[in-house]
Nucleic acid binder design. Structure first.
Length: 401
DNA sequence: AAACGGCACAACCGCTCTTCA
DNA sequence: TTGAAGAGCGGTTGTGCCGTT
């Protein structure tokens, strides 16, 4: 089903249709309810697969304007959360997951519809190069865009665009080494810079230590890519231990892997406090987004989150920014500053976050190169290694299985 | 005008992680 | 310690639209 109001890089006729449909439905509401969707809605699930909610009578398929209104009204009134029971309370014949998805990807006021701007596209490319198919993380750095939207845009536009340029959309490296387009040269340049940071921050391991099947190098097969990425949310508890035993093995092609992401968090946690309770609290932080910020807050950046989250998010954002801006050491400098501030007082108040989603601008004003500090991510990694000893043991155990 | 195929994208599925009793 | 519930993520599917034949 196509949502008229979300038509982006479409033809003018599509845009016209979208405009007409948008006029008919003031909000983001689908204009078509198909017969096939009705059959789905009967709860017949349309196949042998078991739907997420097997309760008989729950509707599936495209949402109607009435359903959207019910959901929006309810959430505006009661707030998000408790998705499992929300449908019943809101008077919807939908499963909770469906409601959550509809709200997150479509009905939320903060969702920005419309064409992906060139700068957004560039940002997506850069972030994908850094993060791989971690759409929620990517979406979290692009205000108003959802992971689903970015994922779709990537699959339908950007991956093909890269392929047409002779670039592997998964690794961002040339498909054919003989081809030296400007794009591939630029990618290679960036790769060189990024590798510095990758080395500093220890680096790649099996992306998912719990996976007994060693992660294969990425292929150009779009559907395979992250099979090893199942459920892909990186878990700081389970993966960081690998930084001790696996060094400099960045075979997956992504520039920042889960271990590194998690390490940044752990490392920062360790540096910013000597209080074990606080450190432990930080240790529970997940790279998965938390709360209502649907992927927006890397470190669980809800407004209610504690100071540590705020700072860690800021630091990570800074680091990510520095990678995107091809200055792998800027984050170190910023980190050091943050640590000093944090030790001195509540530095988080100075954290640059916007009011809505804790997004930190990524297109910085030319992050100036900062001299590498002796106290940076490398320290963070080492310190975090000690900090997460328990996880390390766990990982080692996993590896022996 | 009909058939066909590709495109775009909302929605769904299966899985994982976190939290809590 | 364990299991259930809640929540979130990435991958895939289904469907309408549009252009081409």
């Amino acid at each position: 089903m196509r949502n008229p109001s979300s038509s982006s890089s479409s033809s003018s006729s599509k845009a016209a249709a979208a405009a007409a449909a948008a006029a008919a439905t003031a909000a983001s509401i689908p204009t078509k309810i198909t017969s096939s969707s009705s059959s789905k809605a009967a709860g017949t699930s349309g196949g042998s697969k078991t739907p997420c909610c097997i309760k008989v009578g729950l509707k599936r398929g495209p949402w109607t304007p009435e359903e959207d209104e019910l959901l929006s009204n309810y959430i505006n009134k009661e707030g998000e959360g408790r998705w499992r029971t929300l449908p019943k309370r809101a008077g919807l014949l939908r499963c909770g997951k469906s409601c959550r998805l509809r709200w997150m990807n479509y009905l939320r006021p903060s969702v920005k519809r419309g064409q992906i701007a060139p700068d957004e596209e560039d940002l997506i490319l850069r972030l994908h190069r850094l993060l791989g198919n971690r759409w929620s993380l990517i979406a979290g750095r692009i205000p108003g865009r959802t992971d689903n939207e970015i994922k779709n845009y990537w699959n339908t536009h950007l991956s093909k665009k890269l392929i047409s340029q002779g670039i592997d959309p998964r690794t961002h490296k040339p498909l054919n080494p003989d081809i030296h387009s400007s794009a591939t040269v630029a990618a290679a340049d960036m790769d060189n810079n990024i590798n510095k940071a990758a080395t500093v921050s220890s680096s790649k391991t099996n992306r998912f230590s719990s996976n007994t099947n060693p992660s294969p190098p990425p292929t150009s097969e779009p559907s395979e890519p992250l099979a090893h990425h199942q459920g892909a949310a990186p878990n700081t508890n389970g993966n960081n231990g690998n930084i001790v035993t696996n060094i400099a093995n960045k075979e997956n092609g992504y520039l920042v892997d889960d271990q590194e992401l998690g390490t940044m968090v752990h490392g920062y946690a360790n540096m910013t406090t000597s209080d074990h309770a606080s450190a432990a609290a930080m240790g529970t932080l997940s790279l998965r987004s938390n709360g209502s910020n649907h992927g927006g807050a890397l470190l669980g950046g809800n407004e209610e989150d504690d100071d540590m989250n705020c700072c860690a998010d800021d630091v990570f954002s800074s680091f990510l920014n520095s990678l995107i801006n091809e200055d792998p050491f800027a984050g170190q400098h910023h980190l050091q500053q943050q640590v000093l501030l944090q030790n001195g007082n509540n530095a988080h108040n100075a954290a640059a976050v916007d009011g809505s989603d804790h997004h930190v601008p990524l297109i910085s004003s030319g992050a100036g190169a900062t001299a590498p500090s002796t106290f940076g991510w490398e320290s963070a990694v080492l310190m975090s290694s000690a900090f997460i000893q328990n996880d390390h043991h766990r990982v080692l155990n996993d590896q022996t299985e």
